[in-house]
C-alpha cells in the first residue's frame, strides 16, 4: 500500500510517500512496524496525540483496520481556512 506523510510528519520522515508491503492489520500495527525501522520514524510517531490518520482518504482512528487499504496517510491536525 502507499503510505503518505504531510506537513512536519513528511519533513521528519524525509519523504512524502512510500510503498510498503505489510501484514499489519490495523493503523496501530503499521505504526509499530514503521517505528521499529529507523529513528526518524520513531521520532515522527513518538506522540500519537499530535497525529491524525486517514485510510483511503477518510479520517479514522489508530485502531482502524487497514486490510485491503490502498492508501494510509499520516499528518498533524489540520489547519485549513
Amino acid at each position: 500500500m502507499d503510505v503518505l506523510y504531510f506537513a512536519w510528519v513528511r519533513e521528519r520522515i524525509g519523504l512524502p510517500k512510500e510503498r510498503i508491503e505489510t501484514q499489519a492489520a490495523t493503523v496501530a500495527d503499521l505504526i509499530a512496524e514503521l517505528k521499529a525501522r529507523e529513528a526518524r520514524y520513531e521520532a515522527a510517531f513518538a506522540d500519537l496525540s499530535a497525529l491524525r490518520v486517514a485510510v483511503d482518504q477518510e479520517l479514522t482512528d489508530f485502531d482502524a483496520s487497514i486490510a485491503g487499504a490502498r492508501e494510509v496517510a499520516f499528518f498533524p491536525p489540520m489547519t485549513g481556512g
Partner: peptide, 9 residues
C-alpha cells in the same frame, strides 16, 4: 474546513 479538511499552513 478549518480542522477537517486536509490543509496545513
Amino acid at each position: 474546513l478549518k480542522s477537517r479538511a486536509p490543509f496545513w499552513k
